[in-house]
Design a protein around this nucleic acid. Structure first.
Lengths: 114, 114
DNA sequence: TCATATATGTCGACTTCCTAGGTGTTGCGA
DNA sequence: TCGCAACACCTAGGAAGTCGACATATATGA
């Protein structure tokens, strides 16, 4: 039990969703599946996190929504990345890299000889 | 302005503080300074985050507190890592690595040719 | 004397996540 | 035909953690 992480690290979901949508327009349900698949089951996004996140990203002008027919022949809300959204994604990815570097510095720190 | 990150990624502070304390017992004020120094100014911990975090970690039995005289000759609350705290730190560091791997998978994903 | 550095703490606002619930459709097997 | 799983959307309420602002106190040096 409890494979995958306990809880999504707050603040990472937006970046991940933007990245998935950057791979090609997709609807909520499919975004969750792709995220799980690409991360080899590490990320399991709950609907109660996903849909509010999508609305948030749309409100901020990073995603654009459009009702279309899905692969299975049903109506679904397809999200695509706006220009602003692409810039945001790139910035968040850069920040993520910087964060990883900073955490790595701390985790690898040794007691100073003084 | 606004060098360093906008906001500490929620959930990372505990791991970082545990790691700093693992380098040697330290008091709150010094922990914040070391964290900033080791991360080359990336992490700037605010007092409103730090002290609640220290109390939290103590409540959970990961840190032990003791009043002592600081380097400057004042009374300060020195925190040291408990055994439970060390295990916790190691687990959080492992989870962090797994998280980084998972994020890297997503961020490096390419559009599938289908 | 007054600002700055040292040192600790609280409070309320805000964000974001989770759990738990809800709606409705389609397709499939019993 | 009945029911269940998968598909696809959504919300409400609560928990948790971070931030900004504030409060307190001492020591040092300009």
């Amino acid at each position: 039990m409890n494979e995958g992480q306990i809880e999504l690290l707050r603040g990472t979901l937006d970046m991940l969703v933007l990245k998935i949508v950057a791979l090609g327009p997709s609807h909520g349900y499919a975004i969750a599946q792709r995220l799980q698949q690409i991360s080899k089951d590490f990320f399991q996004v709950h609907q109660g996190s996903l849909y509010p996140a999508l609305h948030r990203l749309e409100d901020r002008g990073w995603l654009r929504a459009e009702w279309k027919e899905s692969e299975t022949g049903r109506e679904a809300k397809f999200y695509s990345l706006t220009k602003k959204g692409r810039r945001q994604m790139e910035e968040e990815a850069r920040n993520w890299d910087r964060l990883c570097d900073a955490v790595a510095l701390v985790l690898s720190a040794q007691e100073m000889a003084s």
